[in-house]
Nucleic acid binder design. Sequence first.
RNA 1: GGACGGGUGGGUGAGUGGCUAAAACCAGCAGACUGUAAAUCUGCCGCUCCUUGCGGGCUACGGAGGUUCGAAUCCUCCCCCGUCCA
Length: 374
Amino acid sequence: MAFRFEVLATDPTGARLGRLTTPHGTIDTPAFMPVGTAATVKAQTQQDLEALGAQIVLANTYHLYLRPGHELIRQMGGLHGFMSWPHPILTDSGGYQVFSLSDLRKISDEGVTFRSHIDGSEHFLSPEKAMEIEIALGADIMMVLDECIEAPAEESRARAAAARTLDWARRSRDYFAAHGDRERQMLFAIVQGGTYPQLREENADALVALNFPGYAIGGLAVGESHELTCEMTAAATARLPADKPRYLMGVGRPEQIPDYVGLGVDTMDCVLPTRGARHGCLFTSQGQLLIRNSSFARDQRPVDETCGCAVCKRYSRAYLRHLYASGEPLAAILNTHHNLYFYLDTMRKIREAIGFGRLERFRSDLRARLARQI
RNA sequence: GGACGGGUGGGUGAGUGGCUAAAACCAGCAGACUGUAAAUCUGCCGCUCCUUGCGGGCUACGGAGGUUCGAAUCCUCCCCCGUCCA
């Protein structure tokens, strides 16, 4: 079997220490997956990502379909060959773009019609089309097309989106069964249901009945409070099979991650470390730091004195502030490197804590330190 | 010596009688960002007072006077800067 998920240990909180095996390598869970929408984690080279210890990265179906095109990527050796990343890759389906590009699309039971943000041309993405694209891209893990809605949203709207997502999950599964290769790629379903616990539970139950090899929880961190995100996550994970990986999509801030892990989440992704870096927001063991702040102009200390990353070992806050203020490309590179290191290092510590059954302590400690600004 | 053109808030630079504490951009200051339309976006950006309000007072468009109910805007003189002619 090319794919395997093992739970190696559990913690009193409900956290799981695990290992997800794919044809391109193993992912230690709980894992943070850097986002590389356009087949690149912005401002980092693949060598950088390897040095950081990233075991898997994301890419995006919708964006790569528009440019450069999935057929081109297939011909160039699939995503792994094209972007020269011989490690695991996960492709998101374009379901998030249903939410983020809501002004540029029309949705129906059949699928989503997007007007390209690049040139205005129209494109139709159905569950089947998304599968066709994702199979061509060749990522180890594929996501079904789903309908991600905003929060807050009416219950009727959340119910409709969850029902549609369920229907699309079935269609995606069937398409993959007919045209894909289970030894090469695995397909994850996505739980929807807005901010309604019962909808989340029902949707999870229905998806589990379709027997996917992994499940994601989507449509969260889209406007609701962290408490609600946790409540919805808990509602879903309670119904998901313990022996399959769970992926909480699109989260979160560093201090929130242990909460999700404690709810039994195995993988997460978020643009916060990468986008934040480009916007001058650095995450540290003492809280968030906005590097452009004048207080760092003559600060010779590293970003985080307890950080072991290559940036903190070598450069001062004063220098990073100068690079950022000057609009130098190196600012994005160094800031991104640090933030990703911080996220990935936090995950290492979380895994260690679970191994010792001490996640709760780690969580409260992290929360106390990070919930502030330097 | 003469002829034009010009001197506006930290910078560039709009504004040719009231709607102007003065556009816009830059710089500066602060914040946001959660399956990436984001190296983006938002707010503040003369001083001051308080009952913090589309609030009051003061100062401000080279300088000094003047016209006018009202002047960055019109007039007079002066001082600078640029271009050209002697």
